[in-house]
Structures are given as structure tokens and as C-alpha cells.
């Protein structure tokens, strides 16, 4: 089966002149339709850098990223922008909701950017907010919502245009563990019910344990990989901890 997204020997080196930082060092990665992949690693291991490359937000220094067989580096800025609008949903650690727009409007604007028809723009935002359990808070502004609620709005926004790929960068990084767990549960549920492909990066092994497949990243390189399908969380965590060693 053809992967949704694939990297080939991809490198990201920052600050080419003077002291350069090798954030991503020749990573090969392929994510299949319907997979929930977690990339886990300590701070500074290059997780975000890799995710930005997957999300068509940054250019690799070397190597290439293919989205559904299409090389991103051959696309124009406008094409990459449209790809982000239609095919990729992004969930940020800092939520990044538009502060002057209500929860509903935050979802609606993504539909607008995706060029959705008027009827859909009217109906879908509330459906999505109900899906993430925020129907009654639809008219609230981000500042009137808790962190967990904001991240749920962000998930609704990321799903607005039925993207083929959902990317999440430390989605629970700013949440307490209980809120984080229920959010991950939601992501897991969306992944299962809709066969929504998810790639999540995190430094938290507990968070990573919700995934089907976990990659361990260290110093810009993939150092290990495990599948968690059908295993219970304790065993999974044990495996992962072993990987880290």
C-alpha cells in the first residue's frame, strides 16, 4: 500500500553559516493510511523540525518529503499552502486559536480557507465541536475556555477539511496529565472511527503509548521503533522504556 507521507533520507540543518545544528539527520519514514504514529524523543531531538517537514511548512536541507507520492519540494508556495489547507490538519502545542474568534468561527475559518461550500461552512463547525464534546461552548472565545477545551477546538479545526493527515506537535504539552489523557483518548477515537491518519510528536512516553507505532528519535535520528497493536499500556511502556535505553 502506498504511504500517505514518506520521507527519504531527509535532513534539516539550521544555521548553515557558522555553527550549524543538525536537527534531522537522514530520516526515512513512511506513514500508512489509518495509522497513528507517535514520534517520541527528548527535548531538542528534532521532533518539531521533522513534523514541520512533514507538514509542508519547512524545506528540508537535503532529501525529500513525498505527500501521497508528490514531492513537496517541487510544489510552489501556493501549492504547499493549499496542501496544508486541504490535506493536512495541524494541532499545535500552544493551541494557536485565533483569539478574537469564537470556537465556532475558529473552525469555520479553516473551512473557508479550504474552500468549503456555504452549506458545509454553516453546518460542519458545530458538528465538529459536538464531536469533540464542545457543542455547548461553541460561542465562547478561546480565552473563556480551559486549555483542554482549547485543544479540543484545535482538533475540530484541524479536522474541518477532512484532511488525509493529522499532525500534532506535543498536543498535551500544555495540559495536565488527566486532561492530556482524555485528549489523547479523543485523538485515538478519531483515528479508529474515521481511519484518520495521525502523526504525533511528544517527549512523553505515556502519551506515545496511545499510538499504533512508536518511533524513538534521538539527536535527529530514529533509534528504535515498536508496534503497540493489541498490547496493553503497561507492556507497551515497558517496551518503550527499554528502547530508550
Amino acid at each position: 500500500m502506498e504511504p500517505i507521507i514518506e520521507t527519504k533520507e531527509v535532513w534539516k540543518v539550521y544555521g548553515m553559516n557558522g555553527a550549524s545544528v543538525e536537527a534531522v539527520c537522514g530520516i526515512d519514514l513512511a506513514v500508512q493510511q489509518g495509522e497513528f504514529v507517535a514520534i517520541v524523543g527528548p527535548s531538542g531531538s528534532g521532533k518539531s523540525s521533522l513534523l514541520h517537514l512533514l507538514g509542508a511548512m519547512d524545506h528540508p536541507t537535503r532529501g525529500e518529503v513525498l505527500f501521497g507520492n508528490q514531492p513537496l519540494h517541487k510544489m510552489s508556495d501556493a501549492q504547499r499552502t493549499d496542501l496544508r489547507a486541504h490535506q493536512i490538519g495541524f494541532i499545535f502545542q500552544t493551541f494557536n486559536l485565533l483569539p478574537n474568534l469564537s470556537a465556532l468561527e475558529n473552525v469555520e475559518i479553516a473551512l473557508r480557507l479550504g474552500g468549503a461550500a456555504k452549506a458545509e461552512r454553516q453546518a460542519r463547525p458545530l458538528e465538529l465541536l459536538e464531536r469533540v464534546g464542545l457543542g455547548p461552548r461553541a460561542r465562547h472565545l478561546p480565552r473563556q475556555l480551559s486549555g483542554g477545551e482549547r485543544q479540543r477546538v484545535a482538533i475540530a479545526r484541524a479536522l474541518a477539511n477532512r484532511p488525509r493527515l493529522l499532525l500534532a506537535d506535543e498536543p498535551t504539552g500544555n495540559l495536565d496529565s488527566k486532561t492530556g489523557a482524555s485528549l489523547l483518548e479523543l485523538l485515538r477515537q478519531i483515528n479508529r472511527q474515521d481511519r484518520q491518519t495521525v502523526v504525533m510528536v511528544t517527549h512523553d512516553f505515556r502519551a506515545a503509548s496511545h499510538a499504533d507505532r512508536v518511533l524513538v528519535l534521538r539527536d535527529g535520528r530514529i533509534r528504535g521503533e515498536t508496534r503497540l497493536q493489541g498490547q496493553d499500556t503497561h507492556r507497551a511502556l515497558g517496551q518503550l522504556l527499554a528502547l530508550e535505553l
Binding site: 495541524f90 480557507l113 477539511n161
Partner: peptide
């Protein structure tokens, strides 16, 4: 800036 960056990240073209 952050809002504009977010808009660009979620797919707003430059002309918008």
C-alpha cells in the same frame, strides 16, 4: 504575527 503565522500554517494563501 502569531495569528498570521497560524493562518498561513492552516492554509491561508498570501493574498488572503
Amino acid at each position: 504575527r502569531k495569528e498570521i503565522g497560524t493562518l498561513r500554517a492552516i492554509g491561508a494563501r498570501r493574498w488572503r
